[in-house]
Design a protein around this nucleic acid. Structure first.
Lengths: 191, 191, 191, 191
DNA sequence: GATGAATGAGGCTTCATTCAT
DNA sequence: TATGAATGAAGCCTCATTCAT
């Protein structure tokens, strides 16, 4: 009856926090094992090696994030409402999985990512790109390169959540409304 | 007066590029030595150990960046002009020292930074904070927590320069003007 | 009375082939378990540990080989006929248990053999020694140290069967007759 | 002025004895390091990994043995004299490098040998094969497959030297003369 | 001062062995 | 009795650091 966490999940959870906090290279297998309360050898029953573990994790959260953004996406709504949907998605995803977005952000260009990981990440970017491109066509979004605009929102948003995680800012609704407005002003077309 | 690069500087230069490109943990001392054309042992004549090296480097570039932002700061000018000064500073610093800002960005929360490094980095943030706070007092900057606003500009700006360094965007003047405008719109008070 | 192979025998069979083919150290318990179609833990119901398993196996086949040589040994026949009996024993034993003699050969000086294994092996050698000694007394076998002569026939014979197992030579009757003659000429007293 | 043994040679020497005595898989790098009085890491300055070490060693001694057999080979002499030359070569080689021939013998079919090692070993066999083939043409050597005859001499000889190394037989000149005669009788054509 | 050979602690990974089911 | 998931000791190998030259 209990929502028993499997060992595999414990390992993935521990790996996520540690990779997010210290980075892949500074995180050792014994660290993950000890944090997950399993023997070091146990990790190898579930993941062929450390790189497979990090790629599995990366793909899992990139896919989850992608799903979060795509779910109930208001295809026919106003650009501003679509932006709101995406922003809310980021917020919700970050709240549910404290470290996931930061992990994705800090590892998306890493040398150890395999082709699958890279293409999953590209798919994620494409969602944002499509949104930006449509907004530009409707002249509601600035005429700057799409990836530049993505970088600005994504970068700003994540840097902000680092502060929230560090406890330096409290994530009130009011703050989030303000930040959303700020990010929107960064990308929207100003008359 | 001589322009001859000292061994110490060669080491710091090599360490900067390698740390920026691969990260601290994935960079080995022999890699730095070989890139700097010195023996591995030589590094230890100038730096007690790898952590001292990375902290020295971090402090050096944080200070240099701080100086760049402070130099000729238009204390009495309009907020918008002050923002322009800061933004130009970031651009200039990034252009002069290709890897420095990226290195600072990717390592500013690392587990191996010592107290001095952390406080130097805080001092850097304080410049931005002071600017923000003054702007808020004059009601020309949004009423959001200062560190939140810093996160947004800093985060967005750096994410953007990652793309430029990766060659995915060309850093034309026009682009920079557009990005500056975008960042400014993110923080300024909208009527 | 039943011919059903017990799990214990399946384990011993698999261990024999694997030890013979790959050697003790390169053979893992999971390999043996999987080849024997039993769980890895099951092996430990029958054998205290890997060393006990290999010693059990070694003793089993050394004893079997010993019995093969002793069975119907023509005590009162000519030396040449006794030699023929021994040689035929080796051939028969090798044919019946493809890997057994090779396993004995490659493991008879191994670091993990216990005293029992060593003494059983000595007993095997003694049969050959007795034969040699009697032959020397009758001046039908060369005057060389017994163990030297055993080494020569044993070594040569086994090296030959390695080739046969590797498929590099076909074990025709004609070949075996020739080899027997060759080995006999190596040990017999020449006028 | 001293014939200082280099560390590389110390490592090779220790590896040779240990591989010969325990086999490749049962020999650990720390064992080799400790026997050679070097740090474990030092081994990796000279050999990329354990497999490169064993292949280097194998090739070195196969080549040395090959050279020993080829040197002053009496091309135009009687078959018997050629046999004497080869046998003396084996004896000399074994005396000079106690473990080398045994190492070659026990590892020549190992799974970790690379192509170079295999082809060097084939070259060694070819010397023996050529001798045998010529002898068969002259009807002075038995009509048995060449590799079978090689196996018989090689196998017998090595088994014998195992005894000598173990101290169970003393390698007097008289013994060696007798053994040579025995081996010769094993391969020669009998009227 | 400068070097790079040498070291050994510590990381990744395997596998003999245990034990709950 | 049989299993195989779990463990952790130990093996291979890397690399920060030392030190003789």
């Amino acid at each position: 009856m209990s929502t028993s966490t499997t060992k595999r999940d414990q390992i993935l959870d521990s790996a996520l926090s540690l990779f997010a906090e210290r980075g892949f290279d500074a995180t050792t297998i014994p660290m993950i094992a000890s944090d997950a309360n399993v023997g070091a050898g146990t990790i190898y029953r579930y993941f062929e090696n450390k790189e497979v573990l990090v790629n599995t994790l990366f793909q899992h959260y990139v896919d989850l994030f992608t799903k979060t953004l795509e779910e109930d996406y208001p295809k026919d709504a106003e650009i501003r409402d679509q932006f709101h949907h995406l922003f809310q998605g980021m917020v919700r995803f970050t709240n549910e999985r404290e470290h996931a977005l930061h992990f994705i952000k800090t590892h998306n260009a890493a040398y150890f990512l395999d082709d699958t990981s890279r293409s999953r990440f590209d798919r994620l970017l494409m969602i944002l790109e499509d949104f930006i491109d449509e907004g530009k066509k409707k002249e509601q979004i600035r005429d700057l390169p799409s990836n530049a605009l993505i970088a600005i929102i994504f970068g700003g948003f994540l840097e902000l959540f680092k502060l929230i995680r560090a406890g330096e800012i409290e994530a009130t609704d009011q703050l989030l409304v303000g930040v959303e407005e700020s990010c929107w002003d960064a990308v929207r077309h100003h008359a």
